[in-house]
Design a protein around this nucleic acid. Structure first.
Lengths: 122, 122, 122, 122
DNA sequence: GTGGTCTAGACCACA
DNA sequence: GTGGTCTAGACCACA
């Protein structure tokens, strides 16, 4: 379900968190869908269960999933998930753009980068 | 000269590195200007000299400063600093924009954020 | 695994960096192989862990190894390591040859040294 | 007489030593010629007299100059200087070439680098 | 005084 | 257990 890059420098925990946020944002998994159990996820990725446990806790704290003892973890309702995801992403963008602005980037400089990425990925 | 947030999660070393890159990018300090000595910087920020030493080493490797044993550390030629700064900033932007792209942001969504920042700051 | 000369004038850190580059270049250790942990290496060489830590950080930055928090350090893909190794070695050679050129060595003088080494070692 | 690059990372002392060795090797200055006094050299290069003093001491130790108290420093006889210079340079080359050999460089790989340098500089 | 390297040892995040 | 960051402080080369 998720691809982990063990050499990327990004912690596995963060990769799991971001991976699920992405899957939810792209509607690959939707409100009410259950996530793999901590243990199955851990064994599939050959990863320590604690790592997955922590990732799920972070996702729950962000409001994109909820966990029910003895049943498992589920995607929260789309209103909540949308809000959480957009807030997260917009903050990232704001920070990067503000920083670029402060060192003298013009709107066009940023637009150029955007165009390059959207063209390349399409 | 620099503001350090000791609880930000970002390492002190990185804050010093990014702080100076920003100061140089904004031309607050210019080619040939000397940076505070490792020791004075360390005592001003109430931080261990090794931490500043490491930050300066990273800045030197990025090509934005050069250090002379026994003399001090200085801002590099503007050609070199510009190159390093643009590379740094463009990487930041690329990462943020790619991530936004992947979860479904459209060009217009990002442009909106850009406009908000550039209007607000002007 | 590595021989350190504590009085050579070359820093321990650099000796570790160059030592591993050589081991990788000579295929004594290969892609995916794990390096000794920072701590075990440090105790084996009777050296402070920070020194090894720094050496590993430099090796990672050069692209010949990658480190995973909590797991260890590993030799990178051979594509990456080859590139880094050749860059490193070619720089060394260039520097030595340029210096010889400048004080009047002719091509033949250098070729003679090369022949002596290659004959002797074969 | 000498060009010092204050940002090169190479210590001023070493630059002075290598600079004179080069001048002697290229016969710009010859046996019996006097070197600038420590003080005039220091003031010309805006450098601490101790630094020049040390450089001269190293040159004397290598046998390429000799100093007479109250009179100054002079280039040694050409037999001595030649010997010292060739020994120095050949050692450098041997070290670099042996290292290249050990990691699998072929003669041709090194020859290519030599040709590139000799063509570029001519 | 200034940068550079190192020891000794603590503490954190991650697995 | 493993890598990463940091404090405290010594010592060296260089100017």
């Amino acid at each position: 379900m998720l691809q982990i890059d063990y050499k990327s420098g990004v912690s596995i925990c963060d990769q799991v968190v971001n991976g699920f946020i992405r899957l939810i944002a792209m509607k690959v998994i939707n409100t009410g869908d259950s996530l793999p159990s901590v243990r199955s996820m851990a064994s599939n990725l050959s990863v320590n269960p604690n790592t997955i446990q922590k990732a799920y806790a972070i996702l729950e704290e962000k409001g994109v999933i909820y966990s029910i003892k003895g049943k498992g973890s589920f995607v929260a309702d789309s209103e909540k998930t949308n809000e959480a995801i957009i807030k997260n992403e917009t903050n990232n963008l704001k920070q990067a753009i503000l920083s670029a602005y402060q060192i003298g980037y013009k709107k066009e400089d940023i637009t150029e980068i955007i165009n390059a990425i959207y063209k390349k990925e399409e």
